[in-house]
Amino acid sequence: HNLTITQGKLFFHYNPKLCLSEIHKMEEVSGTKGRQERNDIALKTNGDQASCENELLKFSYIRTSFDKILLRWEPYWPPDFRDLLGFMLFYKEAPYQNVTEFDGQDACGSNSWTVVDIDPPLRSNDPKSQNHPGWLMRGLKPWTQYAIFVKTLVTFSDERRTYGAKSDIIYVQTDATNPSVPLDPISVSNSSSQIILKWKPPSDPNGNITHYLVFWERQAEDSELFELDYCLKGLKLPSRTWSPPFESEDSQKHNQSEYEDSAGECCSCPKTDSQILKELEESSFRKTFEDYLHNVVFVPRKTSSGTGAEDPRPSRKRRSLGDVGNVTVAVPTVAAFPNTSSTSVPTSPEEHRPFEKVVNKESLVISGLRHFTGYRIELQACNQDTPEERCSVAAYVSARTMPEAKADDIVGPVTHEIFENNVVHLMWQEPKEPNGLIVLYEVSYRRYGDEELHLCVSRKHFALERGCRLRGLSPGNYSVRIRATSLAGNGSWTEPTYFYVTDYLDVPSNIA
């Protein structure tokens, strides 16, 4: 807008934040220059609390790290170098490059900038070799853009010569660093050979998330399962459950009422301010606690030095998902009996873990797994792929695949051998790939016309006998059925096997 004052003059007093240069501009645009008398524009009460600059400061050096910015700028000295009290560095987070010096300023003089007072450097006698002032900004957020400017702080001049310097606002972004852990990993099994893994992005990506790394490792069953005799009275049979499938998407929606109208769909109840505040506090606490764990609990591995020492970490090797089922080394339970199943799973520490690289999504279907087997899954978020990966501390989750139908069934015939004193040795093959492992066998036998009897055969007993022995049988026709019990439950009964026990007292003698 054009402003013209045809008559009258300007009068400025007691404006401590208004620089004289701005008042002189007002004289020019209003056409009143030359009308004012000496005392109409006070030299001592206008701009006496402001830094009124008329020179431009330029930054000469900028260096960044993930949490620091090192700045240096060209030296500046007023005509009387004693008038320079120091520099004021202003900075704040700036997602967009549209910041002005006066953003967030209120009537009390406060604003949204963080201000650092910096002492002037030592003055050199040689004007050509003056030290460049600077400042190291610490405690910054990774991968965050900051708006920065600097200006001088000078003393009051009796001659009211307006001098000083100020830089333009520059924008500097800190470097990326390792992201925080992925949030809320959930693993479920939808079949006997697959596990579905879902997660949420890290709360602090500290860069642009480029991919996720998912490692999985087959877990050995508890050692007590191999040692305890679950045929003993009072000892509860062990059981394991597989990871249940995901709930429906509708039930997972946030901010939804727990109660549904019987007449149909209901609208979600909005969260109160107290609920939102509580969630923010919980989120802040979780982030602080995660940072504490990362800094205190997890110790970084030592990389190899120039002395030739090897990095103890196993090298990563990509495998196809079809090879995942046989990740671990199978060892027989008892070496003397080769027909026992290889369900003991000690994992070799030198073995390469299978892994998958996930790009542009937060889910993965891990296939080719062994049925009813526990897996430990390790999830890392990465925001750099080359020249070397920059990934987060791992988040861990466990899951067990679903049982395989008929995996616990005894394959092959049940054979028998009759000894003296009416002892019958029953023999059968253990299931080759049971659900988890076989903890015991149930032997059901009966003599024709009598009630059915049951015998429990422990895992250890089966390994020693290759089956079991029935003792003290009365003469007669017998039928026997056997079924295995694994961590997933009972298998199917075998087809009945028949044998006849004679009275050993009636056996004919070869003595003449």
Rank of each mutant, 00 (worst) to 15 (best):
I209W: 03
H211A: 09
Y212Q: 00
F215W: 01
E217R: 14
E217P: 12
Q219C: 05
E221L: 09
D222S: 11
L225W: 13
L225C: 08
Y230M: 05
C231E: 03
L232K: 05
K233R: 13
G234T: 08
L237I: 07
S239F: 07
W242Q: 10
S243M: 12
F246R: 05
F246A: 03
S248V: 07
S248C: 14
E249C: 11
E249S: 09
D250S: 11
Q252R: 11
N255W: 15
Q256F: 07
Y259W: 10
E260K: 01
D261A: 14
S262W: 03
G264Y: 06
C266F: 09
C267G: 03
S268G: 08
K271E: 08
S274N: 09
S274P: 09
Q275E: 10
Q275P: 07
Q275T: 11
E279I: 09
E281H: 15
E282I: 13
S283R: 14
F285P: 11
K287F: 14
F289H: 05
F289G: 04
D291F: 12
D291S: 06
L293C: 07
N295V: 11
V297K: 12
V297I: 10
V299L: 05
P300A: 12
S304N: 15
G306Y: 10
G306V: 11
T307K: 14
G308E: 08
A309I: 05
R313V: 12
P314I: 01
R316L: 13
K317N: 09
R319D: 03
R319K: 12
S320A: 15
S320Y: 14
L321P: 10
G322T: 11
V324M: 08
V327N: 08
V327I: 05
V327K: 15
V329A: 03
A330M: 08
V331H: 15
V334T: 11
V334W: 13
A335V: 10
F337V: 09
P338L: 11
N339Q: 11
N339E: 11
S341T: 11
S344V: 10
V345G: 07
T347P: 09
H352L: 07
H352F: 13
F355G: 09
I366F: 13
S367Q: 11
F372P: 00
F372T: 03
T373C: 02
Y375H: 08
Y375N: 00
Y375R: 01
Y375F: 08
R376K: 12
E378P: 01
Q380W: 11
Q380E: 06
D385T: 02
D385K: 14
R390W: 05
R390Q: 08
A394P: 07
A395H: 08
R400A: 06
R400G: 07
T401H: 00
T401G: 01
M402V: 15
M402K: 15
P403F: 07
K406S: 10
A407R: 11
P413G: 15
V414Q: 03
T415E: 01
E417N: 03
I418M: 02
N421F: 04
V423L: 02
L426D: 00
M427I: 12
M427F: 14
Q429Y: 13
P431G: 03
P434C: 03
P434R: 03
P434W: 01
N435W: 00
N435Q: 01
V439D: 05
V439C: 10
Y441Q: 01
Y441V: 06
E442Y: 15
V443D: 01
S444D: 07
Y445W: 13
Y445P: 01
Y448R: 12
L455I: 09
V457R: 06
V457G: 01
V457H: 03
V457F: 09
K460R: 08
H461P: 03
H461E: 05
G467T: 04
G467W: 02
G472C: 03
G476M: 00
G476C: 00
N477G: 12
V480C: 15
R483M: 14
S486I: 00
L487S: 14
A488N: 13
G489F: 07
G489W: 11
G489E: 01
S492I: 13
E495W: 13
E495F: 15
E495T: 11
T497K: 04
T497W: 09
T497E: 08
Y500C: 13
Y500M: 05
V501E: 01
T502P: 08
V507I: 12
